[in-house]
Design a protein around this nucleic acid. Structure first.
Ligand SMILES: [Mn+2]
Ligand SMILES: [Mn+2]
Ligand SMILES: [Zn+2]
Ligand SMILES: [Zn+2]
Lengths: 138, 138
DNA sequence: TAATTCAATGCAAGGGAAGTGCATTATTCG
DNA sequence: CGAATAATGCACTTCCCTTGCATTGAATTA
């Protein structure tokens, strides 16, 4: 059980107050967040700092980006030991058409997708849209 | 074998010179196009007209929208008899990381995706990224 | 400690795509 | 033809993302 400070340092990210706060914010959220979400949570902080912080997290692979089709990029913490860039490791994402939230289905890996001859698959993005468990009243 | 005019009329789209040109442009392209692509192809025409034309085509389901993760919406003609809104009918899309082009793999349908209990799947977006047949030198 | 160095932060500005209101032009129909 | 309706063109706006540059802060070294 490592602290957030240790985790950041292990990934060559210098520890700052802002970064700790943003990390905690992401960790506490169960859903993927937009930059605006972070902005609203830290109104005293500058947009750019938040933007660059999330980009740093992304580069260092402690956060992954999600394109859920809404046109707005979302972010979520990576699973422990997740290798975002390895295809077989990728999980699918679910976007709720009702509450508009997007979540990682981390234990739903993307199935092998067949592509035609001559095509080389390097990466797959799979987003399922529908009604989430909270909204389906279950 | 129906003409473009007949096809437009069959879909309750009034035939205009602009619409014929844009339809032909889409038909001649083998890849999905952005609004900018259309803009560049018709420099004398106004952006808004092109935009609204493609939106009309989309509404009337002779064109479908593609979100390939580049952040820029792309469009492609629907297959004859395609029902974009029916989940089981949806094909997958391939985005080439080399030439940056996106194509419909119309005969590669999206497999059934399992979602957790309480979640209801209404729609699936599946984009495979990699190297296309032209770029893989095959 | 003081000076140096480099990264993080803050401020400002810009780009690009998408969308809308409204006037003008074209087409359809009585 | 004249009226009604739809298509087109122009201007403007919004939203998200990104970057340049100055400033602040922290760490390192003399
Ligand atoms: Mn995820
Ligand atoms: Mn397609
Ligand atoms: Zn929901
Ligand atoms: Zn290619």
């Amino acid at each position: 059980m490592q602290t957030i400070e240790e985790l950041l340092e292990a990934n060559n990210i210098r520890v700052t107050a802002m970064r700790l706060l943003i990390y905690k914010f992401l960790a506490q959220k169960k859903v993927a967040v937009t930059l605006s979400d972070i902005e609203n949570a830290f109104e005293k902080a500058d947009r750019t700092t938040l933007y660059r912080t999330i980009k740093t997290f992304e580069e260092k692979a402690i956060v992954h980006q999600i394109d859920d089709g809404t046109g707005i990029t979302k972010y979520a913490l990576c699973e422990k030991g997740c290798n975002c860039e390895i295809e077989t490791d990728l999980h699918l994402h679910f976007h709720c058409n009702n509450c508009n939230e997007t979540i990682c289905l981390t234990d739903h890996k993307i199935p092998q997708i067949k592509v035609p001859n001559g095509f080389i698959s390097e990466n797959v993005n799979l987003v399922v849209k529908g009604i989430c468990d909270k909204c389906s009243g279950e």
